[in-house]
């Protein structure tokens, strides 16, 4: 089943540019986000996940630079080219169409403003009336699973989990169609982590949100996502339905990632780490970026870069050794 797309990335490349060097954090990434579904984006730290996330709201500020590609949005009927929106239109698109939960969400709240004011201000700037905004604060906080009592508190009076819920409430305030969740649970303990995941899942079910869920934890993504994209060294190396990726991975990197998860059922299973570290991205990579860490790598892997190819229905992998 090919879902109806709501966003489509084509050949997105983002680099960090300084006077001395250029680091290609995201290299020719293309995929689509389906309406009402959760796409999990998985990769190690530094693989370009967060940089890629910034493109959805066009939050690309120096030193990062968009090197090419396009981002199409279908949430308002017609196809819209987001990266070429004029500033006032971009402002109206942000948060109203696509909202985001940030990685550093501990520090994402303005320390000198009350919680309710940080919900109300964005609603007013997106054409809700003041009374409307004022009245929806309680409902939004409740939806995010937090007591409405926090509305008159300042961020420093909240715990990490509470801040994350406030961030969710703010993200939902303008009724967006797409939610980008960039490591939304990273700094939280597992109990709260589980609650937040369940919350996101129920929001998708109730509000029909399309969610891009970014995480370095493939086991976590396996629980929540409908589709999973695996990112390595700035590229998507494998993408497919969550069940396929989790049970029948094709790319050697995905296989290595999955075998690094400890299992509860199989206590005899050996947990394997991945030797070495990801390549630095400030010079051109020849061949497969994973080759140096891959047990199966051959001469061909080191000289010729494998391209994403269909290996199954809706399942693409960029590896010469499928399975």
């Amino acid at each position: 089943m090919a879902g109806e797309r709501i966003m489509e990335l084509k050949d997105i490349s983002i680099s960090y540019v300084s006077k001395k060097e250029k680091t290609d954090a995201v290299r020719n990434v293309s995929f689509q986000l389906d309406k009402g579904s959760i796409l999990g984006l998985v990769g190690e730290s530094g693989c370009g996940k967060s940089t890629l996330a910034s493109v959805f709201l066009k939050l690309i500020y120096p030193p990062s630079k968009l090197m090419g590609g396009s981002l199409n949005y279908y949430g308002r009927g017609d196809e819209e080219d987001i990266l070429n929106l004029k500033p006032p239109d971009l402002r109206r698109y942000r948060w109203k169409e696509v909202a985001m939960i940030f990685q550093g969400s501990m520090n994402s709240l303005n320390p000198v403003m009350k919680v309710e004011d940080q919900i109300i201000d964005v609603m007013i700037d997106h054409d809700y009336s003041y009374t409307e905004a004022m009245n929806s604060v309680d409902k939004l906080l409740q939806m995010a699973g937090i007591s409405k009592r926090v509305r008159s508190l300042y961020p420093h009076e909240l715990s990490g989990g509470m801040k994350q819920r406030v961030n969710i409430a703010i993200a939902l305030s303008c009724e967006p169609k797409v939610l980008i969740a960039d490591e939304p649970t990273t700094a939280l303990d597992v109990v709260v982590q589980d609650q937040i995941i369940k919350k996101l899942e129920s929001l998708r079910n109730e509000l029909g949100l399309s969610i891009l869920f970014i995480s370095h934890d493939i086991s976590l993504v396996g629980v929540i996502a409908d589709k999973i994209a695996i990112m390595y060294a700035g590229k998507i190396v494998e993408i497919g339905k969550a069940t396929d990726i989790m049970n029948n991975p094709k790319h050697q990197y995905t296989i290595a990632l999955l075998s690094s998860i400890p299992s509860l059922e199989d206590s005899g299973k050996k947990v394997k780490g991945i030797p070495g570290k990801p390549p630095v991205l400030n010079r051109e990579i020849i061949g497969c970026a994973f080759a140096d860490r891959c047990a199966k790598a051959t001469e061909r892997c080191r000289s010729e870069e494998p391209q994403l190819e269909q290996v199954d229905s809706e399942h693409l992998s960029a590896c010469y050794f499928p399975g």
Binding site: L59, R92, R94, M106, D125
Partner: peptide, 22 residues
Amino acid sequence: NEDYVMMARAKGLKTWRLKKMY
């Protein structure tokens, strides 16, 4: 460069509000 300013940009706030309040 603070996270909350990045978030304020993402929120699509009007420029005066971003400057004044954040």
